[in-house]
């Protein structure tokens, strides 16, 4: 990490508001890192080291490393921690401290795309509606093995029982996979609907540590349910 002696002073105070005092409870037992499949994947880092770094005020070193991103935030460490340290929350907090243009991969771009255009992959409304209509015939009404005559996707239907969201990767690249839920709704004769806009069910703000975007995404799910007067909201898978 570094060769100089670390002087614990005011300047090394952690920037993470919620966790340094929690991290300082760590007695370095390594229950976290020994049960972690990511241990050994990032040279110089593991869960225990990252927590120690935070408790010593060396957040920036962890923020600059790829540790918080190779860690999958699975929470096994936190579940096992005998000191009850909020390890998962801490690591997600470290992701939040990364400059937005330095967030690895397309996650931040997708989040911004979602805010701007209503889904992570920027699928336009008209394309979405046509696709749903075509798939309703191809996958459902005309299915050879299990035909579902009368099936269609109820879009923007008011007073439905259940409102659902959709993972944008499915209409984008795996449309056939939409059929599983559709078959279940058909067999159950569910009164369901999906919104024609802001239907995204994946919240990448969760992964990038972007609370404001995450909150906006949740807000949209609620607003759709309110506008369409749905009774039940189905959490995304």
């Amino acid at each position: 990490m570094q060769n100089e002696t670390i002087r614990l002073s005011q300047e090394t105070k952690s920037r993470l508001e919620l966790t340094p005092e929690m991290a300082s409870r760590c007695y370095t037992c390594a229950t976290c890192s020994s049960g972690c499949p990511a241990s050994g994947l990032v040279p110089g880092w593991d869960a225990r080291k990252a927590i120690r770094a935070v408790s010593l005020g060396l957040d920036q070193e962890v923020v600059d490393s790829k540790w918080p991103w190779v860690c999958t935030l699975c929470g096994r460490c936190q579940y096992a921690c005998p000191q009850g340290i909020q390890i998962l929350k801490t690591f997600r907090g470290l992701r939040s401290l990364r400059e937005r243009d330095q967030v690895p991969g397309p996650l931040h771009k997708g989040t911004m795309m979602n805010l701007e255009r209503g889904n992570n992959l920027g699928i336009p409304r008209d394309d979405f509606l046509i696709l749903l209509a075509e798939l309703s015939v191809e996958l459902m009404e005309d299915d050879e093995e299990k035909p579902c005559p009368g099936f269609y996707v109820p879009v923007d239907k008011e007073n439905a029982n259940v409102i659902v969201t959709i993972n944008s990767k499915e209409p984008f690249s795996e449309p056939d996979d939409l059929k599983f839920w559709w078959q279940i709704f058909y067999a159950a004769k569910e009164d369901w609907t999906v919104s024609s806009t802001n239907w995204e069910g994946v919240n990448w703000g969760l992964f990038t540590g972007d609370d404001a975007s995450m909150k906006e995404q949740v807000h949209r799910v609620l607003e759709n349910a309110r506008r369409l007067k749905a009774k039940t909201i189905l959490y995304p898978e």
């Binding site: 049960g35 499949p37 990511a38 994947l41 990032v42 790829k66 991103w69 190779v70 860690c71 999958t72 935030l73 699975c74 096994r76 579940y79 096992a80 690895p104 991969g105 397309p106 996650l107 997708g110 990448w204 969760l206 992964f207 990038t208």
Partner: peptide
């Protein structure tokens, strides 16, 4: 106590595929 698949937390969409696979 089940193990994570290795693609959680957005790792499926991240550039660290070697680490994701090893995980």
């Amino acid at each position: 106590n089940n193990h994570c698949c290795g693609a959680g937390g957005g790792a499926w969409a991240m550039p660290y595929s070697q680490e994701r696979i090893a995980y």
